[in-house]
Design a protein around this nucleic acid. Structure first.
Lengths: 360, 360
DNA sequence: GCAGATATTGCAAACGATTGTACATCAGCC
DNA sequence: GGCTGATGTACAATCGTTTGCAATATCTGC
């Protein structure tokens, strides 16, 4: 009959010691109400105390916080989020669009993801990662925006879904995408001036003496298409032709595709613009194998300036995207949008980093 | 006065058409109750219908699902999760431990993360990504396990927190870590036999004629320490000495550290085991610059076999970790643990992939 | 000693779904 | 025709917080 013999009598209110019970480290305290009982106050007060609100007496607030620590209590986030209608979570979505591969593997996107994770954590948000396979409708995106699980959505790449995204944004504001900005589009985009990037790359090659030009990359994604357009413009301005060679990114396919493209007898390129550092690295590898010298026989320019670009041999000349900066901007914009403010797209200028795969 | 002139009169129950109202695409239906009103049934029935339960009449079920589609209704996840006490979310935590860097950048971890994302999506789970900075207590981990926000936790690397993790696991079961398995440890780990990996690397170098050996890598993380131990064992078995050169992973520092290590006059290595492909690539780069020929003057072995390893020049000989397979196993185990089953650690054997940075 | 202002705290109603239980309907059967 | 069992639906409690409002206690100045 003595109190303390039973442990599972949690329900009876007030039957046990009246407040200053410091002992029981084995009464389980899972909920606010549990802790409230232990502290001898009401659940509401505990809630306010843990939130650090000034409405509660400083002394009791500290006492409650101490108890919470002691019992290892943490408020249930689901309940909290449900009630406060604020999740503190940002959804980060990778549309696995025009590339059929089911894998998240592109090192550029992975790097951007890493930076976003850093920035979001710093801003006090959690990050919910989803891969999504666009299906022609808005469903793949609305499943996330409409779930009530996130305060906002960051899109890593638009794939070929610019229109779909526009449509979703008409009724779901807090959304920011990485990618190419298109005139007249509704949703907020942060990204590089891809056309300029392509132009810089081609101009540099031409200035370094290249004349038989090629562009390696699949233009299904609008970003790549714009890079090609820029490169083409630069070529035409110099009275040259540039051959477009579509290269899919899927790891397994890329090697053979490149070999085929480069083995082609008439494909005697002396200057290659690539759609990404990854393609450039693969091309470098294939060219090496076939005995061509770089930059002697062939010059090549990458795109992205991943950390790895400086490690190739020879180190890769490439067009740099400010990806860390881009992540920072994306997070700033999504926060503002969540607060109900208005934001516009930001197009960042790329810069050409001349290393040793071109004869500067 | 005519109905349809106002749009914001949602509150009045039952005043509008009685059930078969197919029109109103502008009455907002946010909640189950809203949809129930439109469908002329109760909220409970709608819930079961959307969940596809067999308890409801097939006909009404389809009618309700059609309505849900038509109104673009999606049940609020927070509410659902709160009630059903199942979140459908797995927390993926990257402990930013012994490396002081604040950045998620290690390509190995990023690659593992990509595979985990794929596997978890396939298993129907969402992925919540957190970086965490261990603080000497269990708090950095328990903030996540105790939040009620995830059904289980996957740790990408243990850093030097093996003991802390053990402690947490004593009261929080569903947790699986990637990393090195230590005898007697409580928590479930999936990973590579690092000691064996280190041994394979060194043995291969020795078989290829290397005699003046070095190991490049910082041994604060237990994984690396075990690789060194394996390499050292192989060296000693051959009557050789292996010099340990600590190399921090932080991008900016790695280059200079390597240069210093390799410029050292007495550091006339002819065989290098590295703790990761990333270090190997950097080393390759520095060695190239200093004019040494590979594998002629120096042979080098990486660790991980990232997709990039085959793209270096010469292509990198490396110790392969089955990272895709590892992700699959981690997800299988976390699911089982969530179901209350028991699982044990899995140590996977690495394999040596001989490419061209060694003279096979 | 009292009106009124000012701290604190308790109460109870949300938040929006899920789910056990009870009730209604209907078919089949002796 | 009444009883049994199956089927489908409505009702209401519940998950664990947050928060507006009311209630109490304390204090201030006159």
């Amino acid at each position: 009959m003595a109190a303390g013999m039973e442990e599972n009598n949690v329900g009876n209110d007030g039957a046990s010691a009246s407040g200053a019970d410091v002992s029981g480290p084995d009464v389980e305290v899972r909920t606010l109400a549990d802790l409230a009982r232990v502290a001898g106050v009401s659940a509401g007060t505990v809630s306010r105390a843990l939130a650090g609100k000034s409405l509660v007496n400083a002394e009791t607030r500290e006492r409650i916080q101490a108890l919470a620590r002691q019992y290892g209590f943490r408020p249930n986030q689901m309940a909290s989020k449900l009630r406060s209608r604020r999740t503190g979570v940002i959804g980060v979505v990778i549309p696995l669009g025009h590339e059929k591969r089911q894998q998240i593997s592109d090192p550029f996107f992975l790097t951007l993801l890493g930076h976003l994770a850093d920035q979001l954590t710093e801003a006090g948000y959690d990050l919910m990662l989803s891969r999504a396979i666009p299906d022609g409708t808005t469903d793949w995106l609305e499943r996330i925006t409409g779930s009530g699980m996130v305060d906002g959505v960051l899109l890593i790449g638009q794939s070929d879904q610019s229109d779909v995204i526009d449509q979703v944004v008409s009724h779901y504001r807090p959304l920011v995408a990485w990618g190419n900005h298109r005139e007249g589009q509704k949703h907020v985009v942060v990204g590089t001036d891809n056309e300029l990037g392509g132009r810089l790359a081609a101009e540099h090659l031409i200035a370094c003496g290249a004349r038989r030009l090629a562009f390696f990359g699949d233009t299904a994604g609008i970003e790549i298409a714009m890079r090609l357009r820029g490169a083409r413009a630069a070529a035409e301005a110099a009275g040259l032709h540039i051959k477009h060679v579509p290269i899919k990114l899927a790891d397994a396919e890329m090697g053979p595709q490149l070999e085929a493209a480069l083995a082609d007898a008439e494909a005697d390129f002396d200057g290659i613009v690539t759609a990404s550092d990854l393609i450039a690295m693969s091309a470098l590898h294939v060219l090496h194998e076939s005995g061509r010298r770089i930059p002697g026989d062939v010059q090549i320019v990458g795109f992205d300036d991943l950390p790895l670009a400086r490690l190739t041999s020879p180190p890769l000349t490439t067009v740099r995207q400010e990806i860390g900066q881009g992540a920072k901007v994306m997070v700033e914009k999504i926060r503002a949008l969540i607060e109900g403010e208005t934001r516009h797209s930001k197009v960042m200028p790329p810069t050409l980093i001349a290393r040793d795969t071109t004869r500067s």
